[in-house]
Design a protein around this nucleic acid. Sequence first.
DNA 1: ACCTGAACACCGTTCAAGT
DNA 2: ACCTGAACACCGTTCAAGT
Lengths: 181, 181
Amino acid sequence: MALTREQVVDAAVGVLADFGLADLSMRRLARELDVQVGALYWHVKNKQELLVDVAARLLGDVGRLPEAEATPREAVASLATAIRTALAPVPDSAEVVQLAQTMQPAALEPLTWLRELLEEAGVPPQHSAWARHLLLNHVLGSVAAQQDRSSLEAVGEAGGPDLGEDAFAWGVGTILDGLGI
Amino acid sequence: MALTREQVVDAAVGVLADFGLADLSMRRLARELDVQVGALYWHVKNKQELLVDVAARLLGDVGRLPEAEATPREAVASLATAIRTALAPVPDSAEVVQLAQTMQPAALEPLTWLRELLEEAGVPPQHSAWARHLLLNHVLGSVAAQQDRSSLEAVGEAGGPDLGEDAFAWGVGTILDGLGI
DNA sequence: ACCTGAACACCGTTCAAGT
DNA sequence: ACCTGAACACCGTTCAAGT
């Protein structure tokens, strides 16, 4: 049976989740899928394009709709948290998402919803794109910091203060306070 | 005359500034310095350690002392702006600084001052490390976003809304508002 | 002390040729 | 349509051997 693009993306997500971005090479993927490297290039244009698909897959389970009874502020906070929750267990996921976002901003739907929710919460349109970036930098920065900390611990080095869930929630609250929503 | 570690770091900063991180390889550096690759490994332990030095050099010109007549809030904002100004012209500088910061948090002095200034401005010690991260994620995220935008433009693709100085200053203000300082 | 030469174990990407 | 085989032009790191 012929290889599919889905299978390539699946394998890539698997290697990323289990071994991190440093081990996610086209050649490694080819070995995993029992094909020659060149075969991958019939299904994806290049590695960057593949990583965009990987990022989209990582964010694929982030639901669109907030709880019905949530306030607009709570809706923003809960989407930010859902994004963090989706990325937290996958090593280097923040880097992959950042790459994907610069290459194809529209491909990552949940990140675009953030802006909509911010406007619904009262952030004026001239600022909502900036506010989205502010929040997103916090989400991705928190995920990366926490993962770097745990990989340093695995090597036996100290990693600075805890930057887990508490720090994340506090940061979201601080930003939303600053936005006045 | 013997090669020095300073010269290796100089060359690395030069390649980064002129061509970006993708072109900053040990072999490229060796060519630039007219030595064999192995020679570099007498002066630096590995590439990561070299990048820590590169990051420190990039932030080396960021001054410690704020204007005497500045309010504590203005002191924080002006340090954040000075960091941004130092990194903005160097491609991929945000990635390099983030790497360096996770590998050797103490090596990047200006980033530690940020926490001190935040405490002087009234952020309680339990939150000052988190607040520093929040601000730093904004600084590095803004630098990276702006650079990605201009490199996409160079290739003739659209890069989304402007994320320049205005967005940066607005973001700093929003964070400081959220911190209540 | 400082560097060369050469190797080891990798990369991403392309492409003629096969089926 | 889909894949193989093989090449091209690279990587980071190590290390015996030279000076």
